[in-house]
Nucleic acid binder design. Sequence first.
DNA 1: AAACGGACCAACCGCTCACAG
DNA 2: ACTGTGAGCGGTTGGTCCGTT
Length: 324
Amino acid sequence: MGRHSCSVKQKLRKGLWSPEEDEKLHTFITRFGVGCWSSVPKLAGLQRCGKSCRLRWINYLRPDLKRGMFSQEEEDLIITLHKALGNRWAQIATQLPGRTDNEIKNFWNSCLKKKLTKQGIDPNTHMPVPEIEVKKEKEYADSVSPQILQTKGLPNLWNSTDIDHQDYHLMQIPIQSLNGNLFAKQVYDPLFLSEFQTSIDSNGYSPNFLSQDLIQGSPIVNPNSYGFNSMPNLTTFDRQNNTDYSECSSSRNNNNMVENGSTFCWEAENKLESMFQFQFSGIQIEETKPGLMQNQNSGDFCGYQMGSLPQELIGGNLDVFHEM
DNA sequence: AAACGGACCAACCGCTCACAG
DNA sequence: ACTGTGAGCGGTTGGTCCGTT
């Protein structure tokens, strides 16, 4: 829509956040909660765009963030959820308390993908790579009948069994399309394509893969309730191969505010958490204020601060945003 | 010790969606 | 119905660190 990117605006800082900026943002959000992100920089005295502030809060300053290594359970859960949801990191993150979509995405791209590949599992399909190759070959062999090879002229496009893979190549249709259920239906039926797109997401995942728990959107408290039994036991697999799972999940910098040696100390700020009265797994949000809570999803923190702030601060918050 | 390359991760960018006017 | 704006999401980039040569 021709909207200006926040980076285009003048005088706005970019890049890494300084401890002072963190402190300003944290103090402001802690005191007034989250209202309108675009107004936060101005009100907090930051030379940043609102988008940048939002990201910094969500990915780094949020008091409930879990830091450090991903546990084995978390890794298993990410793999399971990725199998079901694909690259929907935000949805995956809602099932991992204290983890951000960005963190999970980075972890997936930098570590889990490689581990799965190492184990001979295609990280995109979650299928064993050799199995896929075998399947492809089998499909190819099945589809190439002598009759078809002898066919002159165009194949019957309305009968997918009349089309072999060579035909697809000639028509510049990606061979990947041949995997899955596509062959079971009329490939060129536009209505079918539409149906296909709605039933299978961009990563090729069908919602049918979703477990009952996921469909119902119930928060997963116990990873074991998520069908790990049917998962490849990556723990034993890797440990048997003397692979340390934690190596990739360890944060080199540990991203601990204390380590910044700055004026801002999470340990010292822990007391602030009591203000929030927020418990993730048990999902305990104290008296949410209708109208102030933008989103009560477990992974969204836009509103919980305000619901638990002292009354005078809530009032202050409203005042602040009414000034705009 | 210096150069190089890979790994990691914070942050940015561009897009879509929802909603208000 | 249309338009503008803000929020949220996923992909990508760029800086930093660390191990290797």
